[in-house]
Amino acid sequence: MKIIAMSDSHGDRETVKTVSNLSGNAFFHCGDSELSFDDPLLEKFHTVRGNCDSDHRFPSNVLVEIGDKKVLAVHGHEHDVKRSMMMLYYTAKEQGANIVLFGHSHLYGAEVEDGILFLNPGSTRLPRGGNEATFAVIEWDKTLRISFQNLNGEVIDSLEIKNFTKEH
């Protein structure tokens, strides 16, 4: 299975178009798209509302089954992710999520806690920390492979986790 995640595009239609043209089983936008709910560019995305999104038709979170995984997407501002992952961790446990996607901090990164992958794809518009604009590609069979890519599709960072099975 392969999912593509992006976040914090802040009205930049070209970055959304670039990511949407990729091949994957599911696409997620973790908020602050600043596009309207019915914008055709977001048609193939599971999209959540960020703190800069004015269209309140976006849900604050989505929980989707992709293959044998439950994927939870949020923006992160309602979970205070800039200070701590604790609120998001408890939400993930309550929802039974295996993979949690979030944005808000504009910093890409991934970590596994109690068998749950927490991933921030970074920002495609306003990256922070001296990073390039990024999105994430997550693939799995028995091995979980994560790559953070720039908008030219070049891998700038990656991570591989063995034995990421249904129990995780």
Rank of each mutant, 00 (worst) to 15 (best):
M1A: 08
K2R: 15
K2N: 08
K2W: 02
K2D: 04
I4L: 06
I4G: 03
A5W: 07
D8L: 00
D8S: 01
D8C: 00
H10L: 01
H10D: 00
G11C: 00
E14G: 15
E14N: 14
E14V: 10
K17G: 03
T18A: 06
S20R: 11
N21Q: 10
N21I: 04
L22K: 07
S23M: 10
G24E: 05
N25R: 07
N25G: 11
F28K: 01
G31F: 00
D32P: 00
S33T: 02
S33E: 00
S33D: 00
L35I: 01
L35N: 01
F37L: 11
F37E: 14
D38E: 08
D38R: 14
D39S: 08
D39K: 13
P40F: 15
L42S: 13
L42Q: 06
K44A: 04
F45V: 05
T47N: 11
T47G: 13
V48Q: 08
R49L: 08
R49W: 01
G50Q: 03
D53I: 00
S54K: 09
H56R: 15
H56A: 11
F58N: 02
P59R: 14
N61T: 06
N61G: 09
V62G: 04
L63Q: 04
V64L: 05
K69F: 08
K69I: 04
K70W: 10
V71K: 05
L72N: 04
V74F: 02
V74D: 01
H75C: 02
H75G: 01
H75M: 03
G76C: 08
H77G: 01
E78G: 07
H79D: 12
D80T: 07
V81E: 00
K82L: 01
S84I: 04
M85T: 05
M85S: 09
M85W: 07
M86W: 13
M87P: 06
Y89S: 15
Y89G: 12
Y90R: 15
T91A: 08
K93A: 15
G96H: 15
A97L: 12
A97F: 12
V100C: 05
V100R: 03
L101E: 05
L101S: 05
F102N: 03
F102S: 02
F102P: 00
H104R: 08
H104I: 09
S105E: 09
S105Y: 13
H106P: 11
Y108F: 11
G109Q: 12
E111K: 11
V112H: 06
G115R: 11
G115N: 15
I116F: 12
F118R: 02
L119A: 06
L119E: 07
S123K: 09
T124D: 02
L126I: 10
L126R: 13
P127A: 06
P127W: 13
P127H: 06
R128E: 10
G130K: 10
E132W: 12
A133C: 08
A133M: 10
F135S: 04
A136H: 06
I138C: 04
E139H: 15
W140S: 14
W140V: 14
D141P: 10
K142Y: 15
K142M: 14
T143D: 11
T143G: 14
L144Q: 14
S147T: 12
F148H: 12
F148D: 13
F148Q: 12
N150M: 12
N152G: 06
E154C: 15
L159Y: 09
E160I: 09
E160C: 14
I161N: 03
I161T: 04
K162V: 15
K162G: 10
F164A: 02
F164T: 03
K166E: 13
E167S: 13
H168W: 09
